[in-house]
Amino acid sequence: MASSFAVKRLQRELIKLQAQTPPGITLISANDFSEWHLDIRVLDDTNPLYTNQTYRLRFTFSATYPIEPPEVVFLTRAPNGADPPVLNDYPVPMHPHVYSNGIICLDLLDKQAWSPVHNVESVCISLQSMLTGNRKNERPPNDADFVRSNMRRPRDISFLFHDEKV
């Protein structure tokens, strides 16, 4: 799927992640070079929103990675999970920039603000810090509409990044 360029780079990252991950980040599965799953945890225990919660991230890499950003969403359910399926196998963190279907509105993951020097690890750390800094127990304002009507992949959505505080 991915080009040799992307594969080389991902292989490098994977070996590093398998050897060691930063605190609060766990590599769950990376069976190929197109989709990886990682768990993140907010390390700040004083933040009541995320205490004792683990969130599962899904990274989807294109052939142009790392020139173009990976697609990163919070998983809401296991891909081959329980039968009958349980909605929301995994929690999606409450955050004004995270939709309840797991789509993340973060400029880092957008084409414009993405930089090839970022990697899976740095994205995870950024998301950790994004959650850590948040105290608002809310979803984005148009969450319900968006979740119901969205049929695009995150990469095709043109987000408007307005909030400089996050």
Binding site: Q11, L14, I15, K16, Q18, L27, A30, N31
Partner: peptide, 19 residues
């Protein structure tokens, strides 16, 4: 974690700063 390494072998000429 154990399963994650199964599909991909570390190439022989792989080098990293962590070496």
């Amino acid at each position: 974690m154990a399963q994650s390494g199964s599909a991909m072998e570390v190439p022989a000429d792989f080098t990293a700063p962590e070496d």
